[in-house]
């Protein structure tokens, strides 16, 4: 089976969808000739031309707002926000408009739109090139939020997102773009939205994670295996809708749950997962539902010592697993 880096899988998937469906267009800053600052759209402009691969001005609200209109009038835009940190100027368009259009029009109008954005820290990006923004958007009914962790899932989930009739936020951890490689079949498979994956079976502790943290969780699980702790890792893949069945099913089996996320701990996405587990698996719990998450500072600091301090990593997750396993 061919292997691909995370970003190769994304790039090829966009190209494939554009070949398959001529209503798919790409728009964003530097997505044309340059192929995007991370090269996620490299080669698309040459293949599909400037009608379908549009270099926009530096106007994020416009990128999303015009994509909404284009989606209403028959296209399936893929909007690239250059960094998730810069999605905030488009917040109103995403939350007030894209998310609510179907509900407020009583299903008369939908918005088939995919918004891609690189997120995450550990890349010397400091406060404004490291943010995790999924909590803001997964809070909003009407949006779907996807965070893949493998090239296989990136392809399958991106296909599902582009073909979906509702707005999808597709967050790609930028540290994974070139560091993560994996098998990607050449078939037209999809990974349906709203389904988590058990990426490592185990019996004593469930670790729930997504994105880069799904890798770190696996690493941590491997480390504690030697100590005799059996960890099951659930990679959520889609944050909204949340695959409660897989999450609850796993916790019912292990009786212990650690939620891991890179974003600030307070009110982060993992808090919702923890609440769900507490409500729906209480009778099965042998310990508190716990979290390992980013510290509550307003951003990832730049200096490498400080950045390491901020980032959740396998060592920190390992400590969390040990503590929970001891309950």
């Amino acid at each position: 089976m061919p292997t691909r880096t995370f970003i190769e899988a994304i790039r090829e998937t966009i190209a494939g969808e554009m070949r398959r469906d001529e209503s798919v267009i790409v728009l964003g800053e530097d997505v044309g000739k340059k192929g995007g600052v991370f090269l996620a759209t490299d080669g698309l402009w040459a293949e599909f031309g400037s009608d379908r691969v549009i270099d926009t001005p530096l106007t994020e609200s416009m990128i999303v707002g015009a994509s909404i209109g284009a989606a209403v009038n028959g296209l399936r835009p893929i909007a690239e926000i250059q960094f998730a940190d810069f999605i905030h100027p488009a917040f109103n368009q995403i939350v007030s408009e894209a998310a609510r259009m179907r509900y407020r029009s009583n299903n008369a109008v939908g918005v088939p739109l995919t918004i891609r954005a690189p997120y995450g820290g550990g890349v010397h990006g400091a406060l404004y090139h490291s943010q995790s923004v999924e909590a803001f958007f997964s809070h909003v009914p009407g949006l779907k939020v996807v965070v893949p962790s493998t090239p296989y899932d990136a392809r399958g989930l991106l296909r599902s997102s582009i073909r979906d009739d509702d707005p999808v936020l597709f967050f790609e951890h930028k540290k994974m773009y070139r560091s993560v490689r994996g098998d990607v079949p050449d078939t037209d498979y999809v990974v349906p939205l709203g389904r988590a994956a058990i990426t490592r079976p185990g019996t004593q502790v469930t670790v729930i994670a997504y994105g880069l943290m799904a890798h770190y969780a696996l690493e941590a699980a491997e480390r504690v295996e030697e100590e005799g702790i059996s960890v099951e890792v659930v990679d959520l893949r889609t944050l909204r809708p949340l695959d409660k069945e897989t999450v609850i099913g796993s916790v019912r089996k292990t009786g212990k749950c650690l939620v891991v996320y890179e974003d600030n701990r307070f009110g982060g996405y993992g808090a919702e997962v923890a609440a769900t587990v507490a409500e729906e698996a209480f009778d099965y719990l042998d310990g508190p539902v716990t979290r390992i998450a980013g510290p509550d500072v307003p951003g990832v600091p730049y200096n490498h010592v400080l950045e390491d301090w901020f980032m959740v990593d396998p060592t920190k997750i390992t400590a969390g697993i040990r503590k929970l396993a001891a309950y």
């Binding site: 999303v64 015009a66 209109g69 835009p77 109103n92």
Partner: peptide
């Protein structure tokens, strides 16, 4: 917000040649 939707509709009209 609706001005951007109208502009997007116009963009689609141009691309689709409607």
């Amino acid at each position: 917000t609706q001005i951007l939707h109208a502009v997007g509709i116009a963009l689609a009209a141009k691309i689709r040649g409607t």
